Amino acid sequence: MAPTLFDHGAKPGDLIEIFRGTYEHWAVYIGGNEVVHLIPPSDDSSPFGSLLMLLDSSRVQVRRQKIWEVVGGHRFEINNLLDHKYEPRDRHVIVREACRTVSSAQPYNAVTHNCEHFVTEIRYGKSESRQPGQVVQSRFTQDHVIDMLCVLNLLFLYLRGDQFDF
């Protein structure tokens, strides 16, 4: 059963992992049933929309919202994933840093600067993400990934309307 408004158990400074099917979204819990997170660059949750998001670097905004607005109907859990590797900052420092970023524009790239990078930087002072590596390790060899990215880049350029000759 999914946690309810009154029993999610998060403490200020905890990382919240939200399972959205093909990817996980991340937020920092700041107390008062609120989180700070990156607004994804696309609301298109289709596989093709997610693929375009992966290929297109852009800027996003940091938003402060009620946890339930961000989680919606998805499953989520508290996941302070790097506590075994790094010492987390003090909770009040995590909350202060998260709140300082609200309304700021941030770079976004699903591989190099995604929402998991954002929250781990705030909690640990180290920007890390397991998601890009997990996709590569679990589904493809390195050669297949390079081939696929080349083809997808051409497809993206074509769909964007770029003109080029072969």
Rank of each mutant, 00 (worst) to 15 (best):
M1T: 11
A2Q: 10
A2F: 09
L5F: 07
L5A: 03
D7A: 07
D7G: 01
D7W: 05
H8N: 13
H8G: 00
G9F: 01
A10K: 00
K11H: 05
D14H: 03
I16S: 04
E17L: 13
I18R: 00
I18D: 11
F19C: 11
R20Y: 07
R20V: 07
G21E: 02
Y23P: 03
V28R: 01
I30V: 15
N33S: 14
N33R: 13
E34H: 15
V35Y: 08
V35P: 08
V35M: 10
V36G: 07
I39E: 11
I39C: 06
I39L: 10
I39M: 08
P40G: 12
P40L: 13
P40E: 13
S42W: 06
S42Y: 08
D44V: 04
S46C: 03
F48N: 10
F48A: 14
F48S: 12
G49E: 10
S50I: 06
L51I: 05
L51P: 02
L54M: 15
D56R: 15
D56E: 15
R59E: 12
R59N: 10
R59C: 03
V60I: 07
Q61D: 06
Q61M: 09
Q61G: 05
V62C: 05
R63Y: 02
R64H: 08
Q65P: 00
W68G: 04
V70W: 04
H74P: 01
E77N: 07
E77Y: 02
N79W: 00
N80F: 00
Y86E: 11
Y86N: 00
E87F: 02
E87K: 14
P88G: 03
R91K: 11
H92I: 11
H92M: 09
H92D: 14
H92P: 01
R96G: 07
E97L: 15
C99Y: 01
C99T: 11
C99S: 12
C99A: 09
R100W: 03
T101Y: 04
T101P: 00
V102M: 06
V102C: 12
S103E: 13
S103D: 11
S104N: 13
A105M: 09
Q106W: 10
A110C: 05
T112R: 06
C115E: 04
E116I: 01
E116K: 05
E116V: 01
F118I: 10
T120R: 05
I122G: 11
I122Q: 02
R123D: 02
Y124L: 02
G125T: 04
K126W: 00
K126I: 14
S129M: 03
R130D: 11
Q131E: 14
V136H: 00
V136T: 07
V136N: 02
Q137H: 05
Q137P: 02
Q137N: 14
R139L: 15
R139N: 13
R139W: 08
F140I: 09
F140Q: 05
T141G: 15
Q142R: 07
Q142H: 12
Q142N: 09
D143C: 01
V145M: 14
D147T: 09
D147H: 12
M148P: 01
M148I: 10
N153G: 15
L155F: 08
F156E: 08
L157V: 03
Y158W: 13
R160P: 00
G161E: 04
F164R: 10
F164T: 09
D165P: 06
D165T: 12
F166A: 13
F166R: 12
F166T: 13
